[in-house]
Design a protein around this nucleic acid. Structure first.
Lengths: 191, 191
DNA sequence: CCATTACACTAACACTTGTTAGTTTCAAAA
DNA sequence: TTTTGAAACTAACAAGTGTTAGTGTAATGG
């Protein structure tokens, strides 16, 4: 079991890093290849196009988010706990794939058809899983009567700030971020 | 006083639209020109470079955010009200410049130096104005003891989801969004 | 009425883009 | 030892990039 990564893995990891910091459209195949340490055409021994590379990054992350959500959900019954559990799971995936998840959130728009359509569908499904918990929680009385779409959007965008939090000078653990954000969302800032 | 917009205004508005929906790097000058209804080189009669165009969009928005913040702040003394007031002001600016504010949030990274440096500084200052309210509110006891950086990040990212909310099928007014988001942040989701 | 200015145009440049074709290298399988 | 396959290479293409030079035209101001 080689601890060293294969070239293909290195290509993917480097692409995640570059796509995140400069944007998919702004990163050229030559630049990517140089960072990996090979020539541009050699990239095509591993991925059949630039789009193919982006596709693998985005859909891998989608799969991870779904898997983590489903795993987190089964163990809880109360909606407050359910929400906290999936928030924790979501942040866990981000924390374990900091760069790839940023690409997932910000660069998916550059996917070409038909993958773009499939991706949008996946994202919508994932959003609906969150809204489902909120709606059920409202119905049961665990949560306040509020616009669940707005809440879902607020939750998502808060969670997705995790990357910036990690890169700030504060030394926050994944646990702390998940706890603080779910506390804020559930109980509010007011003392 | 022509009610019709000048060509320069049309260029700017079209650029905001295209940069938002396709990303700065992915939009070419020829495409922009075509949408405006002129030839690409004619753009240079109005802006001296592509970067110049992005710069004007970004710094105009920065100025608007600062102006709205300062205007909102003076009238309030309690920190909960202060926070709500600046949230309202922030969302007001987004609502009045939906496309430009998206460019401001997502495409500023493509600014070239020295503008990039100046822009980053402005963004940081703006963030600190928010954190300042939170920190003072915590000190006074109006707010819970929490990591103010995390809170500020969560607030910012929530606010910046406003664009997506407007574009969803829900018919939410600017008032409603501002009220619901500040309610959520202050009082939490829990009933 | 003439000079100037604003703003459009076409042609073109130097460079970069993603990608393909064809070739070489080198280790593992037969 | 020969064959095969993966994975690197160089050379090159067609298309697209931001931008400049130079020109025409029509309205404006002296």
């Amino acid at each position: 079991m080689a601890a060293a990564q294969t070239t293909k893995e290195k290509v993917k990891r480097t692409a995640q890093k570059l796509f995140r910091e400069r944007g998919y459209a702004a990163v050229g195949m030559r630049e990517l290849a140089k960072e990996v340490g090979i020539q541009a055409p050699s990239l095509y021994n591993h991925y059949k196009s630039k789009d193919d590379l982006l596709r693998e990054i985005c859909f891998d992350m989608a799969q991870q988010f779904f898997a983590a959500f489903d795993k987190a959900l089964v163990t809880e019954v109360k909606f407050q706990r359910q929400l906290k559990a999936v928030i924790k799971a979501h942040i866990g995936v981000i924390a374990a794939n900091l760069e790839a998840s940023e690409v997932f959130f910000n660069e998916w728009m550059f996917l070409e058809q038909p993958h773009l359509g499939k991706f949008k569908k996946l994202r919508f499904e994932y959003e609906m899983k969150f809204r489902d918990i909120i709606d059920k929680g409202i119905k049961k009385g665990d949560f306040k009567e509020m616009n669940s779409k707005l809440i879902a959007f607020a939750i998502f965008s808060s969670l997705n700030a995790t990357y910036d939090l990690y890169n700030s000078n504060e030394n926050l653990t994944q646990e702390e971020i998940a706890n603080d954000i779910s506390d804020l969302l559930l109980k509010g800032l007011k003392s």
